[in-house]
């Protein structure tokens, strides 16, 4: 009964902090998703470029290819970095207890991020995005926020998880 009363007046109850890390940490898997979507976009651009130029390896082709590959490398690493930060700084023991699939999922994202750097295979990029979407859904569940999957509003329209804030 006391629990019910406190929940009813919750908004008026003063907060006391029992936090870790730097107070008021700001975490969001959004950048990890942007990284994964960018990987897919770069794979598309790389394959389009190859198709358009054939075996004509001129300077323009080499310049564009180098830039696409560099951005793909950078964003696969961005995705891994962002997930590592949330994993290391935000996720606590009780979250792993509630979501026992988390350690395996994070490890999978690390591997898929590396795979996305190694290949120009669109499926690898999509697999990375799928895993990060799954991670994002768990992240927002932990924060008691509902989510939905929407087509990304970019040249790459694969689905991404967004919180309903």
């Amino acid at each position: 009964m006391l629990r019910k009363i406190t929940q009813k007046i919750d908004q008026h109850i003063e907060v006391v902090d029992a936090h870790c890390d730097i107070p008021c940490g700001i975490y969001d898997p959004h950048l990890a998703l942007i990284g994964a979507l960018t990987v897919i976009r770069m794979v598309d651009l790389i394959n389009d470029l190859v198709e358009a130029h054939g075996k004509d390896l001129d300077a323009e082709y080499l310049n564009s290819m180098a830039r696409y590959v560099a951005v793909k490398e950078e964003h696969a690493e961005l995705t891994k970095h962002e997930i590592r930060v949330i994993w290391g700084d935000f996720i606590k023991d009780q979250h792993v207890e509630s979501y026992p699939q988390l350690p395996g999922l994070v490890h999978k994202i690390m591997q898929l991020g590396s795979k996305a750097r190694q290949t120009v295979d669109r499926e690898s990029g999509v697999a990375l995005l799928d895993a990060v979407n799954e991670f994002a859904e768990i992240f927002w569940q932990i924060k008691d926020k509902k989510t939905k999957r929407v087509p990304a509003p970019f040249p790459v329209t694969d689905e991404m998880v967004v919180p309903l804030l």
Binding site: R3, T6, D10, I13, E14, V15, V16, D17, A18, H19, C20, K92, D93, Q94
Partner: peptide, 18 residues
């Protein structure tokens, strides 16, 4: 009466406990 935010005392105190 206070509401707990954070989990530095978990599992003794959970986020959202009073």
């Amino acid at each position: 009466l206070l509401r707990v935010r954070g989990s530095s005392l978990w599992p003794d105190f959970h986020e959202g406990d009073y």
